[in-house]
Structures are given as structure tokens and as C-alpha cells.
Amino acid sequence: MEDTMTSQKSTQELAIEGQKHLEDTIESAFQILSSMNEELCNPNFWSTSSPSTNVNGHHAPPNGDATSSDVVETGGGALDEARLRHKASVAALRTVINTIPYSRKAKAYDNDSMSTDELDAEKLEERASELRKELENKNKYLKLLIDQLRELITDISTWQSPVAV
């Protein structure tokens, strides 16, 4: 159901949505790194003797002071939440990226008044017209430069001619 809604969006709308998902992906990746850093910097997770783990797979503190819920709250829960958020944002971003080509195809088929070939021909004609105008302006400028060069050559010829006394 969501794919049909996404394919009806314009490429610009999809780009905005994709940018939002990309920002979410970056933010969740940063949260993953921060959570990992917290876990690595927390000595309660380090094991100096035989590693004992709780039900969630996190190391229990060697002194046994913290309960398994304390361990989850301090480290693993935030990391797992960030991982899930990252997975979801990456999946949403992939969906948007995969939808963009289909939105372009749908847009091309939606043009009932003109076919794609006619639109391309019209764009080419406009570009040709722009190039003709640019060429005309450059030709005028080139003619001006040639005239100035002729005047300069005439002036130099006049200066080099022998003076009749």
C-alpha cells in the first residue's frame, strides 16, 4: 500500500523524504557509536575474571552490585534501540531511493498532451535558439575586435611610413 503512495510522489518530494531518512540514519549511527563508547568506557561491563553474562548477553559487573536491569539500562538498551532505529531508517531510505526511478517513469507517462520525444525536440529547439543568439553576440564582438585590429594596423603602418619632407 505504501509503495503505491510513494510512487505517486514527485521526485522532489521523494528527495526531501530521502534527505529526512538520511538524517535519521546518520543520527542513529551516531547514537550507536555513542552507546558503544558508553559501554566501552563503563568499567562495570569489563570482566577481570571469568565472564558471566546476563540474559541479554551483557557482562555482569564483577562485584555483582548491579542487577541485570541496571546493566540493560546503562548500556545494552540504548545500543539495541539505536540499532533498531538505524535499521528502520536505512530500510526507509532504500525504499525511497528505489522508488525515484519509478516516479520518473510515471511522470513521463503522465504527460498526455505531449510525448517524451516531442518534449525532447522542443527542449532541443529552445537550446538551438539560445546557441544561435549566443553565436550572434559572439560574432558581433568578433567583428568589433577585427575592426579594432584593422585600425591598429593602419595606425602602425602610418607611424612606420617615411615622412616626406
Rank of each mutant, 00 (worst) to 15 (best):
S34R: 12
T53Q: 02
T25F: 06
E27N: 06
A29K: 08
E17Q: 15
N37P: 05
N56T: 04
N56L: 05
H21M: 12
C41R: 07
T53V: 01
W46I: 02
N42Y: 00
L40I: 00
S50Y: 01
N54T: 03
Q8N: 13
E23A: 11
F45V: 01
I26E: 15
P43W: 00
G18S: 15
N42C: 07
P43S: 03
E13Y: 09
E27T: 08
T25M: 13
A29D: 08
Q19G: 08
P51Y: 02
Q8I: 09
K9D: 11
E17C: 15
S50C: 03
E39L: 11
G18A: 15
S28R: 07
S50V: 02
N54Y: 01
T53I: 04
H21G: 06
S28I: 05
N56G: 08
S10C: 08
W46V: 00
C41W: 01
N54K: 00
W46A: 01
M36C: 07
I26L: 12
Q12H: 14
P51C: 03
G18D: 09
G18P: 11
I16Y: 08
N54C: 05
G18N: 08
S34E: 13
S10P: 12
E17F: 07
M36P: 02
E38G: 08
H21E: 13
V55E: 06
G18H: 13
L40Q: 10
S35T: 03
M36Q: 06
I16S: 13
W46N: 02
S28M: 08
N54F: 00
E38F: 04
I26P: 05
F45M: 03
T11G: 15
